[in-house]
Structures are given as structure tokens and as C-alpha cells.
Write a protein that binds this DNA or RNA. Structure first.
Length: 299
DNA sequence: CACTTGACCTGTCCGC
DNA sequence: TGCGGACAGGTCAAGT
């Protein structure tokens, strides 16, 4: 589920909501979601203050004053939802944002998907929910985070200034013989792109997702570079994509999906008015949305 | 080594 | 309505 724009949105929300708060209790009962021992938590989290919330690729990090960090991956269906003390005392009443009755997927928490409950000194609560249990949290010294295998190999951040078209080209050529979609989804090539934004950016760049990386002309890689940045920025502006489960730190949906040009648009006319219908097929083992008229296949 | 496929889980939707 | 199977936004291990 959450890709870079969704995780970035959660990060920004949490930075507004939990920085400065002190952790008083954490409860959890699914070791694959959160493998740490209660002893670790009690020693280094209870009484600790939240200093900062960071993001790298699709991973969130919550840094504590004890120089310990929660490292969190939401995978497909993870959610981090903050509920203020006042709201938490109520039940489901007033849990839907004023004037937006349908912008939330969250009912009363905790629910059956809740894996970890973090309580703060003011009575507010952060829920880690994850229906499919693919997501995880790890609690470790802040200094050790960068030694995690994922962080050692992960590629550059596409929204940093140093991300140039030449850099994209160089990174993609780490996987010269695979499909360009598989390369974009490979987090060691580039950080943060998932299935939605791979399809959207490849459509914008007129590249068929099954094109072989090394066969795609540099001119089109340049276009892809621009599309990646534009698509990610637009999605962040819209609060990310909510297809099924994703909500931000306040439990609210993102609206990017209504701006998507191909993702989940199978059977609909291509937005370029080329006369073709968007089809859904499978590339790199993933559902893939394409206009075969507008997206050229380089093989 | 490079690349692809299956596994991890639960829930939902679709066809019979 | 019930049931089986396919599928869902991510990543790693195992397989080719």
C-alpha cells in the first residue's frame, strides 16, 4: 500500500502530532509485527520523548530522546493513526473530520487489525494497524538504524535535489536486462516508488512498462525523470493515494487516486484522447495499467 | 550472477 | 448464499 507520498504524508502528520510527547506505555502481541521484548521497551521507550519523525524510502523512523528509534514499515495495509486524548475518550462520535463525513476509513480503535498501541503522557494514543500483518516495527538504537540491510542497499530519494535524469539513468542501468517497471520497483535502484507511481510515471513518459531498461532511449529516461518527480509531488499535495486501506496519521484518506491517469482505469478511454482503452495486464508480477497506443515498448 | 517467482497474511470480490 | 480461487499498493528468500 503506502509508497513514498503516503509515507511522507504520515511522517508530516506525525511530526505535527507527536513530537514532544512522552511515551508512557506500549502494548503489542504480534511478534512478527513488533519483535522487541517488553524489557527493551520499558528500559528505552517509557519516559522517552519523541524528538523527530523521519522517512527514508517507504520506511518511517520515530526518534526518541533516549537515542532509540522506532523503525516502521507499513508494507501493504499498515496504518499509523493518532487519536487525541479527547477523541480517544469518546467512542466513534466526532471521529470524522468536520465537513468531510466520508474522508475516514477508521472506526473505533483499537480494532481487530491493531497490532501495537503506544500511549503518551497526555492520554493520546498512536495505533499501528495492519490487516495483512506484512508490516513491522523494530525498536533499536538510533545509531544502528543505518546498518539495517535495507538501508545499506536502498537507492537515492527521488525528491532530493541531487536526483538528476543522469542519476536515474545510471541507477536504472543497474538492472539493464529487466523490465523498466521491475527496475523502478526495485528499492535498491530508486527509493520509494511502488506499483501506483511506477504505472503513473511510465504512462506520463510514454514508456511501456515491459520495455527492457537498456533499450529505452535516454530522451525518454529524461522524461521519466520529470514524470516521477511530478507524480510524487502531486500525490504528496493530495495527501497520497487511498485505494483500499491507506489513511494518514489522522485516519483520513488521500485523494491522489482521483487524479491518476492509468492506475485502476482499465476499460476507460485513455486520457490523451488517442482513442484507445486502458488495459490491465501483468508486468514484473504486478498488476500493470497501460495505454498500448501511447506507451511504446522498447525491447 | 541476474532475474523471476513464491511466501508472508487477511479480506474482498467474482464466477460457478 | 456458499465456496473456491484470484487478487490487493511491498519486500525478502528461494528457485531457475
Amino acid at each position: 500500500m503506502p509508497e513514498l507520498p503516503e509515507v511522507e504524508t504520515v511522517k508530516r502528520g506525525l511530526n505535527k502530532l507527536i513530537v514532544g510527547k512522552t511515551i508512557t506505555n506500549i502494548s503489542f502481541d504480534w511478534p512478527k509485527s513488533f519483535p522487541n521484548s517488553q524489557d527493551d521497551i520499558a528500559s528505552f521507550a517509557y519516559g522517552a520523548k519523541v524528538i523527530n519523525v523521519r522517512r527514508r524510502a517507504k520506511v518511517l523512523m520515530i526518534d526518541l530522546s533516549t537515542k532509540y528509534t522506532f523503525v516502521i514499515h507499513l508494507k501493504m495495509t499498515g496504518q499509523l493513526v493518532y487519536v487525541g486524548a479527547q477523541k480517544n475518550k469518546n467512542t466513534t462520535k466526532n471521529r470524522f473530520g468536520a465537513g468531510h463525513p466520508n474522508d475516514s476509513l477508521i472506526g473505533q480503535l483499537p480494532d481487530k487489525s491493531t497490532r501495537v498501541i503506544t500511549t503518551f503522557n497526555d492520554g493520546s494514543v498512536l495505533y499501528f494497524n495492519d490487516q495483512r500483518k506484512f508490516g513491522w516495527m523494530k525498536f533499536m538504537p538510533t545509531a544502528e538504524v543505518k546498518t539495517l540491510p535495507f538501508f545499506v542497499k536502498v537507492g537515492p530519494e527521488p525528491l532530493e535535489d541531487t536526483f538528476s535524469a543522469d542519476l536515474l539513468n545510471k541507477r536504472l542501468l543497474k538492472r539493464p536486462n529487466t523490465t523498466i517497471k521491475a527496475a523502478l520497483l526495485d528499492q535498491s535502484v530508486l527509493a520509494g516508488i511502488g506499483n501506483i507511481y511506477a504505472d503513473e510515471s511510465l504512462f506520463g513518459a510514454n514508456i511501456h512498462p515491459a520495455s527492457t531498461v537498456k533499450k529505452v532511449p535516454k530522451k525518454h529516461i529524461n522524461k521519466l525523470h520529470k514524470e516521477i518527480i511530478d507524480v510524487l509531488n502531486l500525490s504528496i499535495q493530495k495527501g497520497g493515494s487511498t485505494d483500499k486501506n491507506y489513511v494518514n496519521a489522522e485516519g483520513k484518506k488521500g485523494s491522489y487516486i482521483t487524479f491518476a491517469k492509468v492506475f485502476r482505469k482499465e476499460g476507460k478511454p485513455c486520457i490523451n484522447n488517442c482513442g484507445n482503452i486502458i488495459i490491465k495486464t501483468k508486468v514484473a508480477g504486478r498488476g500493470t495499467h497501460i495505454c498500448i497506443q501511447c506507451q511504446k515498448k522498447y525491447v
